[in-house]
């Protein structure tokens, strides 16, 4: 099985650390979302993993070997890094043929990945006539060309239309099912939540989290319960007595709507029933990856603001 292993990886540009003592592993058989704000070091890390940039210190290996030492790299690792990598004056098919020639990959395979990326009909058009979404599809087709065991995609959903988004989601799930190692960077939270099993979160080049998505969301996002009741005052007093903080919402229809923070449906339901408060609606508020992520990065921002040495660097 082929994993990506990043150990103590550091990359400095001038005096600035783009990647700061990063250590994590990307395992096969699941989609790992690579999150972080712009400039957090996601793309730099991917370039380091691919051996395109030289690390200041530390190592990045694929299946235990540095990428530059692989005999047939396209069969081991496929990557989408730059959407502009295909020359505008070349046709999509020629772009892939050039790449395929380096590994003696037959033209049949080129047509296969073009078909898979939904570009078969336009494969003989020049890339400059392509929309951003089509260029992304071409970049993904290039990444899949060598049928690699490891796939790295940098912001693959950029510019894709809704069908494209669904397509990439299905594709990523399938690649993981096939036992491949899939690392996908994004700054779109809901998008990432829809395909990732595992998360690696960066902030300012440092590792903020390396956990399964479910755990990440549950650990970070504050659980809330929404209640609708005709007896708002009684509910508020009841909850306050038990240490819950409840906030009234603008109500329409019968009864008041309340949001209870840091609460679970089971607890609130039992409390209300025990005290005889009428409840018309009771629902857990869906916790999103976005909330969890923003909580995490807000905490990091606070930490950064408090730490004078980091503040000076910034």
């Amino acid at each position: 099985m082929t994993s990506i292993d990043v150990r103590d990886l550091t990359k400095e540009y001038g005096g600035r650390r783009a990647v700061d003592r990063l250590t994590f592993s990307v395992r096969p058989g699941r989609v790992t979302g690579f999150l972080g704000p712009n400039g957090a070091g996601k793309s730099t890390t991917m370039r380091l993993v691919l051996g395109l940039d030289r690390p200041t210190s530390g190592t990045a290996t694929i299946g235990g070997r540095p990428c530059a030492a692989l005999d047939e790299p396209l069969r081991e690792v496929g990557a989408l890094l730059d959407t502009g990598a295909a020359h505008g004056s070349r046709t999509a098919r020629d772009h892939l043929r050039v790449l395929a020639a380096t590994h003696r990959i037959p033209g049949r395979r080129v047509d296969e990945v073009l078909e898979e990326a939904g570009l078969a009909a336009v494969s003989r058009n020049r890339v400059r006539t392509y929309s951003l979404g089509m260029r992304q599809r071409l970049g993904i087709a290039a990444a899949l060309l060598g049928d690699p065991r490891v796939v790295l995609l940098d912001e693959p959903s950029n510019g894709l239309d809704p069908e494209g988004i669904v397509w990439i989601r299905e594709l990523l799930r399938r690649l993981a099912r096939e036992g491949r190692t899939v690392l996908v960077s994004s700054h779109l939270m809901n998008e990432t939540a829809s395909f990732a099993d595992h998360l690696v979160v960066l902030g300012r080049g440092r590792l903020l989290a390396d956990t399964p998505v479910r755990e990440f969301v549950h650990a970070r996002a504050e659980p809330r319960v929404r209640v609708r009741t005709p007896d708002g005052a009684a509910l508020r007093d009841l909850l306050a007595r038990h240490g819950y903080e409840s906030v009234a919402e603008e109500g329409e229809g019968a009864g008041d709507r309340w949001t209870v923070r840091h609460a679970r449906v089971d607890d609130i339901g039992r409390l209300a029933s025990g005290a005889g408060v009428t409840v018309l609606e009771l629902a857990a508020e869906e916790r999103t990856l976005e909330q969890a992520y923003l909580d995490l990065t807000a905490a990091e921002a606070e930490f950064t603001a408090m730490s004078p040495s980091r503040a000076q660097e910034a």
Partner: peptide
Amino acid sequence: SAEFRGGALRLSLSAVPH
């Protein structure tokens, strides 16, 4: 110079890392 536009070199070197 065609390699120095739009990250073409990165793609080329990811296929031929030597």
